[in-house]
Design a protein around this nucleic acid. Structure first.
Length: 449
RNA sequence: GGUCUGGUGGCAGAAUGGCUAUGCAUCGGACUGCAAAUCCGCGUAUGUGGGUUCGAUUCCCGCCCAGACCUCCA
């Protein structure tokens, strides 16, 4: 009934999704390196994955979703040193923050969330195999992957080794046979974290962890591998090379999904540029669902420019949706949000899904029950509507609702005697405290401003 | 320099070889004591120059512009 189409970065076209095993869908997304609070850009890829996973759950019986935590990395070591903080303490603290932020955004937890440091033996086994099969070599305490040993190196990201050499802007370590060779294992000094290995005490390179953990939990071949567009090269290219060289007869990932970058005020949001907003910071200014809606308003592969104006706009749209659900509360209903599912099946076309939601909202505001049910079901498929309209409009106010009600009564009395000056003053005073009054046919109601 | 993606109304943002979503904003109206919310009405927008075609925003080529990746990055 539903046929899912996805854009595959490798083939560079939108293709029918054909699972390895329809009885068990398996996907892997690259999670965060835990050295700081995640920012909005990180969130966008997690959210794209979340929509993907929610859709797959709606279409298939069984879905295994793996999203790793990278808890060993030079940036972590560096940050821990700067903070004078124990590395484990830093990674655990940051992981906790990460979970908190994702929970706030109603992003479902993965089925399995493996940590790199718990899989060192898996990585070492892979490295050993790569060396044995002639795809890796030891040099100067490092183990390096030999990119020339893998004929289709560059195929994923669409570049050739020649192109890369032509565009090389970095000094190449002299122990590398080819400038494109990348580290599988590197030596650690006495103060750096390290594990014993046949190559001496050291730690893994960046890419091998994902290859090892994907294999452990999903097998040699699985369905979808995703992450931010900036991971396409070198990270995913290298992962693919390692895994395919380890298991020459596997497919590794059948579909590659890459999320477009998030800009902030027209510029790329990144930790190194320092122009990023943390989720924590944004949630102090708008509800989480407004932020989610903002992201859903653009297709996952396109670049999205975050601005505070858009956040405010998204919030108004959520107001309208909740107003529709307030007017016509959804009833228990087993019907599936077919239109929204169809939109998502078209390479996760969330903007189109949202336009469908608008149609249902219009109808729900007119009182159509079925439309309200569809609005709720469709929105929940997108991870929206986690609360009741009452909670949305009135939840978490500073003022006590009883106080507000008392003031509304007082204003009503003033209006009855046509003392509009007093009535308006009460309304304005409340507005100054973030409470908006609305006089409807059934009396006066209030909501957060 | 190399590779790639994209340029749609004031803004955001889908889709499509011919009838061009949706939202926000603006403006006008209804409603309201005034507002708010809601409702009604109002906008032919597809960077540029060619080509293919009966017909292109959609396909092809050139150009211009923007962004990403090539280096840690979701």
């Amino acid at each position: 009934m539903f046929s899912l189409k996805l854009h595959d970065s490798h083939r560079r076209e939108t293709v029918p999704f054909i699972p390895e095993d329809p009885a068990h869908i398996r996907l892997y997304f690259c999670g965060p390196t835990v050295y700081d609070r995640v920012h909005l850009g990180n969130l966008r890829s997690m959210l794209s994955a979340d929509i993907m996973v929610r859709l797959l759950h709606a279409l298939y019986e069984r879905v295994t979703y793996v999203r790793n935590i990278t808890d060993i990395d030079d940036k972590i070591i560096q940050r821990a040193t700067e903070n004078g903080e124990d590395i484990t303490h830093l990674t655990e603290r940051t992981t906790k923050d990460f979970h908190q932020d994702l929970t706030a955004l109603n992003i479902l937890p993965p089925t399995i969330e493996p940590r790199a440091t718990h899989h060192i033996p898996d990585m070492l086994a892979m490295i050993e195999r790569l060396i044995t099969q002639g795809h890796a070599y030891e040099a100067d305490g490092h183990v390096l992957f030999d990119v020339t040993s893998f004929p289709s190196y560059g195929a994923l990201s669409g570049r050739s080794l020649e192109d890369m050499q032509a565009g090389a802007r970095v000094e190449v370590a002299d122990y590398k046979r080819h400038p494109g060779d990348f580290v599988l294992w590197k030596p650690s000094n006495a103060t750096e974290p390290g594990w014993d290995s046949p190559y001496g005490r050291g730690r893994p390179g960046w890419h091998i962890e994902c290859s090892a953990m994907a294999e452990r939990y999903l097998g040699e071949s699985f369905d979808i591998h995703g992450g931010g567009n900036d991971l396409l090269f070198p990270h995913h290219e290298n992962e693919r090379a390692q895994s395919l060289c380890c298991h020459p007869h596997s497919h590794f990932a059948r579909h590659w999904l890459h999320t477009g970058m998030l800009l902030s005020g027209g510029e790329k949001m990144s930790k190194s540029l320092g122009n990023f907003h943390t989720i924590h910071e944004v949630l102090e200014r708008a509800p989480a669902e407004a932020l989610r809606l903002l992201f859903l308003g653009a297709h996952y592969r396109s670049t999205l420019d975050f601005t505070w104006e858009k956040l405010e706009e998204a919030r108004h749209i959520m107001d309208r949706f909740y107003r529709a659900l307030e007017k016509t509360p959804a009833t228990k209903d087993d019907s599936r949000p077919v239109d929204v599912l169809n939109a998502l099946c078209d390479d996760l076309n969330t903007p189109q899904a949202l336009s469908i939601l608008h149609r249902y909202a219009d109808a729900a505001l007119e009182g159509q029950q079925e439309a309200a049910n569809q609005l709720l079901a469709g929105g929940q498929l997108l991870g929206l509507f986690t609360m009741s309209p009452t909670e949305w409009f009135q939840g978490g106010t500073e003022l006590d609702p009883a106080t507000i009600d008392a003031l509304i009564e007082k204003r009503l009395a003033a209006r009855k005697v046509r003392d509009f000056a007093l009535a308006d003053q009460i309304r304005n005073d409340l507005a100054a405290q973030g409470i908006l009054l609305e006089d409807g046919p059934n009396g006066t109601t209030w909501r957060k401003g």
